[in-house]
Design a protein around this nucleic acid. Structure first.
Lengths: 215, 215
DNA sequence: TCGCGGAATTGACATTTGTCATGCGATGCC
DNA sequence: GGCATCGCATGACAAATGTCAATTCCGCGA
């Protein structure tokens, strides 16, 4: 975007550091600021009745709660830091103003929004078309890929959170890991070792239309 | 948007009529045209392995597969007509061109996209936070509202499709209807009668952050 | 009007998933 | 070092959901 527009956009913005486990925003609240995660990790989650579920995990550098900002509508999800995190906050009205003035910025915003949208659609397909075992298997393959396609890698989250993200209980996740043993999955704490890549892929049947979160 | 831009946008566009049960687009295909439903009904669905699930039902007047158009990425969902439908098709490149030239159009596009995005997020919360019984109860309340808040109304879709949309089997939907009887829900074919509004609402606990699909 | 075919329902049963209680093991703090 | 805490694992059990087969219902066309 143009320098002048960028200066205007950042004029009232500020960067803040947060310790872990801080609730940054609460679902239902009005959307005053666009949030951009610069470092650390943030969890997006939702609650209903006495239940809570992990909707997504945000890694740097990405925005979150962009749609609420654009629509000036209440947040649909809450957000909390998982680690010490640096977050930039830009007043929603400035984002909307920049959108009108700067075409490249508008393009970038709409691109980011479309990516987020497609990401939820993929996640919904994952949920509705697969069993929990299949979801875990595909999650492992995705995580392996992000870690560099090696035979072993670390889980980037605690298992309780992973379970929630995959739409199951922690107890069930434990059992699911055991059920994947025959397909060549070894678990030692947070360390995963895949001993039979082909067998796991044959079971998981990953699809770019569900598992490729880059497009 | 400006007349001139509109004319350019519509220049290569065309309107087509489709009979029911026609597959309009297939997931994985490249996104050549933005689709706009003018009349009729369209189902968005996805498949994996030998399974299929209903992702959303589109009613006029709305676009569908907007995100794929914007990202020039493959469709994530397939679409088929459920009834005789009129659909406008606009070449993707013309949409992108108009986006750059016309600010009001860009605003409208980003607004529509944000609405679709938020709609999937709500649907995902529905799926992950509620049991199938709770999903059905809330679906009935939403449908009642759309039908004018009367004590009785018609289901707008066949039950097999509703079951798929709610993430369950047709057999389970049948049983779920029966289980809602004690809460004042009468079913006669496609006709639903709600005899005890308060009781049903007390059970369903609808929330605008999940069930209000207008914001 | 009859009969066909697809949808819906129903019952019996299997599978999956969740719940609760318990125990283990690592971590951190006094 | 000992103790409390928390995450994780495990077993027993309950509840929810899916599967299969049989039957009923209903709209449509011959």
């Amino acid at each position: 975007m143009e320098d002048e527009h960028f200066v205007n956009l950042m004029h009232a913005a500020y960067v803040q550091n947060f310790p872990p486990q801080i609730e940054l925003i609460t679902e239902g609240d009005p959307s005053d600021f666009l949030h951009i995660l610069l470092s650390g990790t943030v969890e997006l989650f939702s609650t209903w009745k006495d239940r809570e579920t992990c909707m997504a995990t945000v890694y740097p550098i990405s925005t979150f709660i962009l749609a609420a900002t654009i629509k000036s509508a209440p947040y649909l999800m809450s957000a909390r830091t998982l680690e010490k995190s640096r977050i930039a906050l830009i007043p929603s009205q400035d984002v909307l103003a920049a959108f009108d003035k700067d075409n490249d910025f508008a393009r970038a915003i709409v691109g980011e929004l479309a990516t987020c949208y497609r990401s939820v659609v993929k996640s919904q397909k994952d949920l509705k078309l697969r069993t929990s075992l299949e979801r875990l298997a595909n999650y492992l393959l995705r995580t392996q890929k992000r870690a560099g396609n090696g035979g072993d890698f670390e889980l980037p989250t605690e298992k309780r959170r992973l379970a929630s993200a995959l739409g199951m209980t922690p107890e069930n996740l434990s059992r699911a890991f055991k059920s994947l043993q025959p397909y060549g999955v070894q678990v030692d704490g947070n360390r995963i070792t895949i001993t039979d890549q082909e067998d796991l892929e044959r079971f998981a049947k990953p699809s770019p239309l569900i598992d490729d979160h880059t497009t």
